[in-house]
Amino acid sequence: MPMLEIQGLNKAFGGLRAINGLELHVDEGEVVSVIGPNGAGKTTFFNLVTGMETPDEGSIVFDGQDVVGLRPNQILKLGMARTFQNVRLFPAMTVLENVMVGQHSRTKAGLFGAVFKTPSQRREEVEIEERAKEVLSFFGTRLAGYRHDQLSMVLSYANRRRLEIARAMATGPRLLLLDEPTAGMNPRETIELTELIGRLRSEKGYTIVLIEHDMQVVRNVSDRVVVLDHGVKLTEGSYDEVSSNEKVIEAYLGRPAELGA
């Protein structure tokens, strides 16, 4: 049974059909890239899956449970976490706090415990902090040490993207949805991030869906590529299959020469 199964998904904004009859499945342990020209409906697809928007029609089944109609925090708790295309951290909170917030739905200390500092609350607080540090250590020295107490807004652009991934990891997901993780990064940083995505799967065992424009990254990390255009799935398959598909080249990739290496 696939981990995520989407059937007959429809979403319209006024007259614009952002998602039109989308069918998609993601198996456990896969890395699936979603590509498509601007306005193809990629981010809307993420918003629908994570509950930030409600679909007009269709079903989204995660782990055997229909998530349509659930609040984003409920869906997150089922084990699906995302990052955002235009990095949306909590700017006036520290790096560590950003990651600690990610664990909100996995912890349960009540207001009473927080005010009176009950033993269980203290224990949980220590665990939250340790887990946050552990998640950050996944990024090597990038987000370690003194960076823990820096406000997230002073981070460099690439580090903000890393921190967003860390925050998503801290929520304890099984499926990670990464929205253009390499947007705005320089080539070196892009290579680093490509490796990181590989490690996310091999070391942490996440299933990953990512939206990506950089074809190098798509080729290097994905098991399967799904092409969207105008809310419709054009085709799917391995990178080589997709990149040689006439329709895709026409709609999105332009001339074959642009496929690059």
């Binding site: 994570t50 509950g51 930030m52 609040r71 984003p72 925090n73 997150l76 708790k77 976490a81 995302r82 955002f84 949306r88 951290l89 909590f90 700017p91 006036a92 909170m93 706090e97 600690m100 917030v101 990610g102 664990q103 909100h104 739905s105 996995r106 925050r167 998503a168 929520t171």
Partner: peptide, 18 residues
């Protein structure tokens, strides 16, 4: 932390489990 996250960005806070 949940309150601060909500202050910073309500919809993201919700998407992060708050």
């Amino acid at each position: 932390r949940a309150w601060m996250a909500m202050r910073e960005d309500e919809s993201v806070a919700e998407a992060m489990g708050v």
